[in-house]
Design a protein around this nucleic acid. Structure first.
Lengths: 159, 159
DNA sequence: GACATAGTGCAATCCGGTTGCATTTTCGGA
DNA sequence: TCCGAAAATGCAACCGGATTGCACTATGTC
């Protein structure tokens, strides 16, 4: 289990207890390589209680190993922070597929600057681009389904 | 009730039945002048059932009078679309105060362009800037409270 | 190895969103 | 003005994700 031990190292480095649950959660997220919601993770790790998954996510996030992105569906998704960018979330936009619910990072792009009202204090930003991923776009093209994408509840498979 | 009748006109124009509930909901949102969540609206309009509020919001959104923005807390908030921009949501960023939960529009700014993976289809974008609003920032300055802003659950009053 | 502390699992709760269904309102036509 | 179809509303109930309390277990220290 290379990934697992690697995850344990990261936990150690981050200064939190390297427990089995946290290692599994972190490994799963890193392996996925894209933002995963709490339910998706819980499904991916049936050997863990969903509450444990939830609390592990909280701990990992607090320690700076993960950051969360809110989807259009109200589901919070988590991605691993690359070591170099630890503790600096919100540094790039994300793309959410309305069809399959999958979320991907657009890491090579910087967050645009925004002017805020005088006196405001900016803590972070979140830029979400939504639509159809290449796969679903292709699928939709064939089966001719120009439906109410923006309205539809993130339907199938992957959360 | 000037606001109310004005709302009725808007409903008529939008081509949906101008019912009391819809007029009240729309008037409340326009009066607020900033994005309100469904729970906030339900609290603001105790004479209406929360389901009715919910369905009115759906109808108003479908007719292009409103658009919704997802907050960091997973709560969907609604704002009135100015007549000129009807049916064109997602045209500007929003600011969310982590302290009081109030959300404001930053309408004078355009959505930045983002490159997406080949084959993707962009339906819309959502840009959320979060932090402290001028009021809360000032309050925090005094009472010295440099706490876990990003973690905190949108605490008090306004949703 | 023993102990204090932190993490885990389970059950239960909270809350926003959503649906089914019976009743009421709206609106076009008689 | 009245009538009936269609749409909207209120109520109760349900669903699913988030969160908490508490007893039990694993972790790390001395």
């Amino acid at each position: 289990m290379t990934k697992g031990t690697q995850a344990v190292d990261l936990l150690d480095d981050a200064g939190i207890r390297p427990t089995k649950a946290r290692a599994l959660v972190l490994a799963a997220i890193m392996e996925a390589g894209r933002p995963l919601s709490h339910p998706a993770l819980a499904a991916l790790l049936p050997e863990l209680d969903r509450v444990t998954v939830f609390r592990s996510l909280k701990a990992l996030k607090a320690s700076g190993l993960l950051h969360g992105i809110q989807g259009l569906d109200g589901l919070l998704r988590y991605v691993a922070n690359p070591a170099s960018r630890k503790g600096c979330p919100g540094k790039h936009p994300h793309f959410l597929c309305l069809e399959c619910g999958a979320m991907t990072c657009l890491p090579e792009q910087r967050m645009p600057h925004v002017r805020v009202p005088e006196g405001s204090e900016v803590v972070g930003k979140q830029f979400l681009v939504y639509g159809l991923c290449p796969l679903c776009s292709a699928k939709n093209q064939k089966s001719g389904n120009p439906a109410d994408l923006a309205t539809r509840k993130s339907a199938s498979a992957e959360k």
